[in-house]
Design a protein around this nucleic acid. Structure first.
Lengths: 235, 235
DNA sequence: GCTCTTAATACTGTATACACTTCAGAACGC
DNA sequence: GCGTTCTGAAGTGTATACAGTATTAAGAGC
């Protein structure tokens, strides 16, 4: 018996699924590094000095190196033999690729979700949309942004395909790097919001092709926004 | 100057892009492990003993653990604190998810490729298809199988979206685990082959919707095949 | 002054050592 | 006999040590 028996009896109800989340050091380090890279606190293209970074994080090289392997798999750094980890520079093209990929997943999933989602789930989606619209009404960018991301992910999740959900999640995560280039112009913001409203309506009537075309429009809008932003502000 | 000058002058032509491929130990180990898992040489669900496996591979725990982090990111193993790496068991549902995801990518990419691929590239695709069909004529399963995989990947690559290509590649790689469940029945094999022929024709005329519907049929066929196979042979 | 060579330094790649957790079985009480 | 506690072994998590490679700077030759 590894746990305190009193605890065990306390939990004897049905709490067995509690995740508890005991992170290891390399997990923690990976998370920290991910943030640092994504938020641009480490220059893209720069090499990562393991001893230096390890010291600043207060860990030895071992968990740090393990974390770097994870980040490499996620495409955030490149690993070069005898040079170590190099923070990956995202070409504009790659960003557009990622956005396009996200949209492709969402379009596929919207079709699937029309078949598989329960009425309750769809209502949930719609009410979340409403919340977002109301945040738009208040011009609350941060709340809007978070809800927006949540909605896109929810749409994908409702298709019930774990593989696609995972891919969508990691890609979206990586895009945090460029997400500060966000809704600049009021008219574009308004348009995006109305698209979301349309999406919810189409979802409620399980209209696959309508959802598809709205998402396609949404993609075009995003790409355009990105291209404009990147002209001024080279990544 | 790090290299022997005579070498440098020898290479002064235009060989600078040679990949050379100096793998590190953890890369090598990751590749080996990937194969072992994918080919079922390590039982799904079993824990991986680091010292034991390291000894059998002739490496210390350090590169082995680093390799495991990579495999974990790829979803081949789960990492549990104080228990180490556990070979992931693929539920049937997850396999179906992956197949569906692959098809979704392919459908999206076929549409994109119709716009972006050059005539030459399309011809290349068509001739590869012909090669595969001729292998089908000889009932050469292995060659057929390889070409089949190549064709699917090529179609995706022709869309020119790195993100989608990468995802397609890793997912296909993971599916090697269940690919031994392959074309059992002659009629299904014939049907799949004819679908490929149709795909090439449609691609030549850049007929997006035709390609989409063929790929959808192809998916249905694959799913059906998988379901039948998995009924008999539980994974 | 410039280039090439060479030596020293810094840093990565790998192995080993130590600490802590988990698990299994023995010892013990009842 | 059954359950509980303790103890030891086994194994993972992390830190450190060592080896080999790249890079920088100094020096020699011209």
């Amino acid at each position: 018996m590894t746990r305190d028996p009193t605890m065990t009896t306390d939990l004897s109800g049905d709490y067995s699924e509690a995740p508890i989340l005991q992170r290891t050091l390399h997990d923690e380090v990976a998370a920290r590094l991910r943030d640092m890279i994504v938020e641009g606190r480490i220059d893209p293209g720069s090499r990562i000095n393991e001893v230096q970074l390890g010291r600043s994080l207060g860990v030895s090289r071992t968990p740090l190196r393990e974390a770097l392997k994870t980040l490499a798999s996620e495409g955030l750094v490149d690993l070069v033999r005898n040079k170590g980890a190099i923070v990956r520079t995202f070409a504009i093209g790659e960003t557009l690729d990622m956005v396009q990929a996200l949209s492709a997943i969402e379009q596929t999933c919207s079709r699937l979700a029309c078949d598989t989602a329960s009425a309750e789930e769809i209502e949930n989606f719609c009410s979340l949309t409403e919340t977002m619209v109301s945040e738009y009404g208040k011009r609350n960018r941060l709340a809007y942004f978070k809800l927006n991301q949540q909605l896109h992910q929810l749409l994908v999740d409702l298709a019930g395909n774990q593989t696609l959900s995972r891919f969508h999640r990691t890609t979206q995560e990586q895009l945090r790097r460029v997400r500060f280039i966000d809704i600049d112009k009021a008219d574009i913001w308004a348009l995006a919001t109305s698209q979301h409203e349309g999406l919810a309506v189409a979802f409620r009537s399980r209209d696959k092709s309508k959802m598809g075309s709205i998402l396609e429009d949404h993609l075009v809008l995003t790409l355009q926004r990105l291209r404009e932003a990147t002209h001024a502000n080279e990544l």
